[in-house]
């Protein structure tokens, strides 16, 4: 139902403006604060006019947080999560949609359940596994041979440990599944008649056809991966594996009683925000299309 009265129009506009200010407000503070001097940023009342100190602040933040190294760590982790997820989801969805096996429903529900168990919920058991990968094998070997082996094998302080638990969830799988199910059965049958096996079909047909899906998932996963905080915090003890999200804490003004330099902190957080913003800006056209409609 669409209603058009002057009052309703005014009300909806008012709501939208308030919502917009709520969203954009903190951003304005960050942008303005990041380019002001320490005196300006601590002045009361706060002035929303940007200053000219951004480069100086950014340089200070970069060295204080050792952001160069952390950026590379974050980028590696994010790209591994993104591509791992895009590839793994496509494969699982392919298996779930196009193959008939007696255990199909079991697999489907196993994948589906992971949707209900995000990493935050299963963080303790996941950590236990990642911290001691060898225990299950040790128990098996001990059970069958009686030999007790003492081997340490864990994923702490490694990119594998940072990314694997985040890759293995079902969101992407369902995005692909919905798309694959809109494809007519005849497409697969025609490919079969043309002599193409399942693997060829996957690469020649499914992947090119799900291009918008892939790009949408890439966008989501990049932001998701970049924003990870809790899991890296658990997995990483070695500073050389720290990600930018962990460095964000170190950017807080030193608590030595002096005037807090919020301008440096804000400039640092702006830098950290930049990569996901760029990715979203480039891919957002596909992002919406891939999630909303299935292009055929």
């Amino acid at each position: 139902m669409i209603q058009r009265t002057p009052f309703a129009n005014a009300l909806t506009y008012a709501i939208m403006v308030i919502g917009f200010l709520l969203l954009i407000g903190p951003f304005l503070v960050v942008i303005a604060g990041a380019s002001q001097t320490m005196q300006q940023v601590n002045a009361v009342p706060f002035r929303f006019v940007p200053g000219d100190q951004f480069l100086a602040n950014a340089t200070a933040a970069w060295t204080r947080g050792d952001l160069g190294h952390a950026m590379i760590n974050s980028l590696i982790m994010t790209l591994m999560i993104t591509f791992g997820k895009v590839a793994l989801s496509a494969c699982t969805a392919f298996a779930i949609v196009f193959f008939r096996s007696p255990l199909k429903h079991l697999f489907f529900w196993t994948v589906f359940i992971t949707l209900m168990l995000p990493l935050e919920v299963r963080v303790v058991p996941t950590y236990a596994v990642a911290a001691d990968m060898f225990t299950p094998f040790r128990l098996l070997i001990q059970f069958f041979t009686g030999i007790e082996l003492k081997i340490e094998w864990n994923l702490l302080n490694s990119y594998a440990g940072l990314t694997l638990p985040l890759i293995a969830t079902a969101t992407g799988t369902f995005l692909y599944r919905q798309f694959f199910m809109t494809l007519p059965d005849e497409l697969a049958e025609a490919a079969r008649m043309d002599g193409s096996g399942p693997v060829r079909f996957f690469f020649d047909m499914l992947l090119p056809l799900s291009r918008t899906n892939i790009l949408a998932l890439t966008t989501i996963m990049f932001v998701y991966g970049w924003n990870q905080y809790l899991w890296p915090l658990l997995m990483v003890t070695d500073p050389s594996y720290q990600t930018v999200m962990m460095k964000l804490r170190m950017l807080l003004p030193p608590e030595d009683g002096g005037t807090p330099d919020w301008n440096v902190t804000l400039a640092g957080s702006l830098l950290i925000m930049l990569p996901p913003v760029l990715v979203v800006a480039v891919l957002q056209r596909w992002f919406v299309r891939g999630l909303v409609s299935s292009e055929k």
Partner: peptide, 9 residues
């Protein structure tokens, strides 16, 4: 096939 089943891409 009835619905042609051409490869759309």
């Amino acid at each position: 096939f009835q619905n042609y089943a051409l490869y759309p891409h």
